[in-house]
Amino acid sequence: MNWQSALDPHSANARHLADLFWFFTALCAAIWLLVVAALLRAIRHPGLAGEQDPPERQLRKSRIVGALTALTVLILVVFTAASFYTTRSFAWPDMNTLRIKVTGQQWWWQVEYRNHDASQVLTTANEIHIPVGRPVTLELHATDVIHSFWVPDLMGKQDLIPGRTNYLTLQADHAGVYRGQCAEFCGLEHARMAIWVFAQEPSAFEAWRRHALMPNTMPDGGAAAKGAYIFVHRQCASCHAINGSDAAGQTGPDLTHFGARATIAAGTLHNTAANLDRWLADPQAVKPGANMPKVDLSAPDRAALVAFLEGLK
């Protein structure tokens, strides 16, 4: 897994941004060194106080100042042009690619694969799977406050604004898992609002997509079946949907194939049975303020829910 870093680009766009960064840094560093050198020289060879320069020396001095001012303006123009041309190409989304709607909400991400054919629409949360080597267009929405989508290895950031759609094109050169993060302060749990991009070879991506589209089969015995019953008949189903069950809540993350996810609650915990038990015992102790309430559940009921949810592969 790659730890997120804008200086470790894994796509053409991220590389352009990193190049831009190094260009700025190198030029500014060179200018800084020259200024410091000039300063040191001035300290070493101070002019005499009150001494009047001869006219030809004064003329040379003002020429130097004039030339340096012009050079500063030129450098600023070059910087402006470089950032304009680098980021301009990002602004035009390609609408003929795979389109994924990403909705930011306090404090998790809903991910919906768009398709004209309703049977191919796929909803998941906190994870985006994409095929490598192909541009993917993200449609960015928000339901409550402004969030910002940022997967530094793959692309610069883009805001998600309530009532408005922004676009971002994502492309990964190599298969891998790239971490992303909400990059606009959005309230209490902003720091625990991560997202993962899984870039896969096209065939692996297609296999994942086919599988993810299928409803989960409901367990027909044991603890998992009890868990399924509790899930549908207790509070869980008011907020969560599971394709294949009667749970159809729309306000929390869709939990279809939840057992296959890497993390719980937008990167807050690794998805293990022990952690899921902790999450269900009291989400507010794990992620205080999160919009999932503490539901009073006995330990056996919790174990049944864990068996059920972890079995949703």
């Binding site: 207790r234 309430p293 009073d296």
Partner: peptide, 8 residues
């Protein structure tokens, strides 16, 4: 009562 918690 079975769809929301008491606090909610």
């Amino acid at each position: 009562k079975n769809r929301l918690t008491d606090q909610q």
